[in-house]
Nucleic acid binder design. Structure first.
Lengths: 340, 340
DNA sequence: ATCCAACTTGTCACCGGTGACATAGGTGGC
DNA sequence: GCCACCTATGTCACCGGTGACAAGTTGGAT
């Protein structure tokens, strides 16, 4: 509303002095400070952040670009980033990019045009090289998926290892036919989790059966249908590895409606009340809050110490959270069960 | 990176002409447009949004301020707002305010200082009158809770009606002692839901027992403990009404660990896989996506037609999503069950 | 040939806060 | 008494894109 010069006029000082009061400059007499503060209160002056950051050339806000804010994983990650940013007085500007990569560049550049100090982003397209010219002006940290075509920090979960452990866990419990359900290989995390799954299968000396891999479960209902289809196949799986929470949310009701709760489920990604389901799925917990915290910490570290040398890629370990149903004595061998 | 004047120099035109090309002005010859576009591509010019919006006085971005981004309810609402904003080419700047009201003003003013075109906010403090001077410059729509001390649009769910219906539903099934679990009455929605609960109790001719009302369940564990305490009381409830999802997430495991899954639960607020729990809680579905959509639509309507007269307060109806467990024959009367 | 209208491009001030620098009173040391 | 130095305040240009306005060009109608 009112500008700094209006405040200055009311307080009988120059604009610069108001600026000094706002920035808590040492060189302001108590008397003047009082007058200015009264004028600020009276006019309800709120500084124009745009003007300030425009002058100084860079906004101290940071941008966050993720596929979908309402995905609990990203929501939690953003929350963590925001908490750290707030502690530093940085605003956070969030944007959803969608999942198909088409809007990534436009969405991210809309953020960049605001002269942000930093960016936390999840790559959704196959090429982030368009960020190259920005790297000299700002810090960029990728989360959840590694970037392509550009050198920048990334903080991701150990998708391969997590999926491998999860699958191996099922193998240890006697399962020989384990299904893999995933959104789409376009999403790098899903591709990496499939790799981990394949690794475990190979390590167990099992043969890899593509029939057991169901992809393109990008919507809740698709995951549900794919699950039912898998179960109805001639040689059905005896356990399911769901590569994302989004899939798991479709798989669980499918197992229930098919009355096949005997088929254990491992979900890559924890979700609220997972442990209250009966049977409770085992989950691979890749703590989104932690990913967000690590990413934000790294971002500010880059901003504070532009030349410090740091390992670019951080891979956070994931926990396999076992559930009672999964931890009992190894299940009857898969093939037997499948025969029923 | 590069500025408009640099592009202009490279293309051999004036800055203004570059501006015209950027804004798709009619009055640019094809030949010049080509030259400028080539220069833009070569320099990878991305306009400085700050400069533009600073000059024009108002950013076409809108701000969203909610208690907690990672709360699925708000995450979904933001997602809806963002989708509508993106369709209009507006950026969305999100900020979490926390739940205690102390940072509301500072958090919101940090947004406002960016000269936003509009604001979607959830009141967390008891007074929003500080927004008064901004109303002439921007549109404000409150969601989830009505504002205090200021006249502005609001989009909220029918908390009273929803809670009343939910409670009445339990009464119809024979329950006489129904517990109410809530975060805190500081949160307006919780207070309104308690009101609805009390209404239903009164309408059923039951006496209101404060012992059955457990508040301050602001953390998951508190809700859990309060549930256990309620169940262990001398005259325990036979059904529970949980006023928020955050509470429900504590109540469900509490009921399970106390082996009292015979006690039906109604949760105000749906959550993923609620229907996959056994027993499945009945939920009051106050569609956050819808609230977000309605709020965003209203916001842009205000921006487009500042003088159009609209009803200020929108109260969206809520659905009671019944679950099998709740829909069977009315339960044995509460008192009998309680005696066991 | 003349004139008006539409088109094409350019000039310049301006948005509001702040950095660089100037100015002016005051204090203390020698 | 003079200079050095700190304190307190002011002046002014500048960040980069754009609105207001000017000026030059073209083409068709009169």
């Amino acid at each position: 509303m009112s500008t700094m010069r209006e405040v200055a006029a009311l307080a009988g000082v120059s604009g610069k002095t108001v600026s000094r009061v706002m920035r808590n400059d040492r060189y302001v007499s108590e008397e003047v400070r009082g007058r200015v503060e009264r004028a600020i209160a009276e006019l309800r002056y709120v500084p124009n952040v745009l003007a300030r950051t425009f002058r100084s050339g860079s906004d101290n806000a940071i941008g966050v670009a993720v596929p979908d804010i309402s995905d609990p994983f990203f929501a939690a990650a953003i929350h963590a980033v925001e908490a750290i940013a707030r502690a530093r007085g940085s605003a956070v500007i969030v944007t959803s990019l969608g999942d198909d990569g088409a809007h990534e560049r436009a969405g991210v550049e809309a953020l960049l045009g605001r002269q942000l100090a930093g960016l936390v982003s999840t790559p959704v397209s196959r090429d982030q090289s368009y960020l190259e010219p920005w790297l000299s002006r700002m810090a960029v940290v990728f989360i959840d998926r590694p970037p392509t075509g550009i050198k920048a920090d990334s903080v991701i979960a150990d998708d391969v290892g997590g999926a491998r452990n999860a699958t191996a866990h099922l193998v240890r419990h006697g399962h020989r036919r384990i299904a893999f359900i995933g959104d789409t290989l376009e999403i790098a995390t899903v591709a990496r989790r499939l790799k981990g799954y394949q690794k475990a299968i190979a390590e167990a000396g099992l043969s890899y059966d593509p029939q057991l891999v169901a992809l393109e479960a990008t919507q809740k209902n698709t995951a549900r249908e794919l699950t039912l289809k898998l179960l109805a196949a001639p040689d059905p799986p005896t356990a399911i590895f769901s590569s994302t929470v989004r899939c798991s949310i479709g798989v669980v009701p499918a197992l229930q409606s098919a009355d096949r709760t005997d088929v254990p489920l491992i979900s890559f990604g924890d979700f609220p009340l997972a442990m209250s389901l009966r049977p409770a799925p085992t989950v691979v917990d890749h703590d989104p809050g932690r990913i967000g915290r690590v990413a934000a910490t790294r971002l500010f570290e880059r901003l504070d110490h532009p030349r410090r040398r740091l390992k670019r890629h951080v891979v956070l370990p994931v926990d396999l959270v076992l559930q009672a149903a999964c931890c009992g004595p190894p299940a009857a061998t898969g093939t037997e069960l499948a025969a029923t």
